[in-house]
Nucleic acid binder design. Structure first.
Lengths: 227, 227
DNA sequence: GTATAAACTTAGATGTATCTAACAAATAAG
DNA sequence: CTTATTTGTTAGATACATCTAAGTTTATAC
């Protein structure tokens, strides 16, 4: 039996949003999805009805939403296209990492496997996008490395910034202004227990205080202590 | 008074189709437009109503359709994005000229002036796309060079292929198979008056018979006779 | 110059994607 | 454990983009 079923851009956006909101957890509340997509609750409801019929989500009345296996794969492939595009824009077209999300948000819906595989080839099959997020492979499998947040690290921790949690233009411009980019070495000099502000030493020379809000969005790895 | 009015992809496709069908002439018949877009007549009708209200087309009942000045500009800017994309795909991503139309058809709707201007810059502000069609400038102005068709040339004419009339994959693959590409020198050896077939000498060495259908789609310039 | 054919228009229907208003269920608060 | 609040659902409305069926106008043919 042969199925040729194409999803609208809108449907793709719902799948993507559910995928991203269920990162780590298994389900998402309709309310959360509605806020994430900027649509009202009944809209979520009618779209879930459609995606349910297509076998892409699981959802029973008054219960949270999750993706089926095929929904997950479909979402991962859209995210693959999004992240390859972001990488292409940064590496091959000299865009800043703060400029690429909006463009990739549109490019990701282009129907042309060869277009994205050409990007992939030109980029040498990158494993991460410019914000440090993993790029799913052609089968929709994605490395689920769960980097800790800077805000969860303790005093004296020696770290490297490997990803950001959020690709909003404002946040990335904030980081640019402070010359904070992926790969940067950081040491936690102090943590203010009252508000979660952290004082960080960058590259062993520059010292700066970062708010909890910012520290929540910076993902790090422990630096090899043998070094 | 401030207007922020965005057109849907569908509207953009109508504007583009009208622009291309009114190349050289001033109007297009609704029927022609309907066939070109693959929609039924009433669909044309209701879209014309909308584009009329937006001041993008001129149309009165039972009369042909034309673009207003602002409709023309808008269409030209979409075509600019399409043709820049085609050029980018060929020059920077190593696609064949027969592969790019379908992809550009989708990319042209992306809303990001900087994305296309970056392409333009990387390409060195090209004046033609890979099929020899002029690329409109940022103001929507387009060089209207009207190259003659090969089929309108006479015996013994010495020519250079400068553009094709049609970017369909099948036609371009047909040309690829015969190693016919832009810039190729051609001499008309004979014209069959019965069916319009032409015998052409390519690059002063290779001889081939081309059907009228093909000759209608090949656009040429007269080679400088002083050469 | 009427008859016929082709092109065009109107009216009304369908499916997508959204909304508001009103109602129902689940959760939180007292 | 009842009440209030939040969350979720249903029903019905709107706008877009399309269709079919039926009627109208223009063009073509004889």
């Amino acid at each position: 039996m042969y199925f040729c079923f194409v999803n609208s851009n809108t449907e793709e956006n719902y799948l993507k949003a559910i995928f991203l909101l269920t990162d780590g957890v298994s389900e998402v509340q309709p309310k959360e999805l509605s806020e994430s997509l900027g649509v009202k609750m009944p809209t979520i409801n009618s779209m879930m009805k459609r995606l349910l019929e297509k076998g892409l989500v699981e959802h029973t009345s008054y219960r949270p939403i999750s993706l089926t296996k095929s929904g997950k794969k479909m979402a991962a492939l859209i995210i693959r296209k999004h992240r390859l595009t972001e990488m292409f824009l940064v590496e091959k077209m000299e865009f800043g990492w703060e400029e690429v999300h909006e463009i990739a948000e549109q490019v990701e819906h282009i129907k042309s496997p060869i277009f994205f595989e050409k990007m992939n080839e030109m980029l040498g099959s990158p494993k991460q996008d410019p914000h440090g997020s993993s790029i799913p492979d052609l089968n929709g499998n994605i490395d689920n490395v769960n980097y800790p947040k800077l805000s969860d690290c303790e005093k004296n921790a020696e770290l490297r910034l490997v990803a950001v949690n959020n690709s909003s233009e404002d946040f990335l411009k904030f980081l640019n202004a402070r010359k904070i980019s992926l790969g940067l070495r950081m040491k936690v000099l102090s943590v203010e227990s009252f508000d979660g502000n952290m004082t960080i030493l960058f590259n062993e020379k520059r010292e700066e205080v970062l708010s909890k809000i910012v520290c929540d969005r910076l993902l790090v790895t422990q630096l090899n202590p043998s070094k």
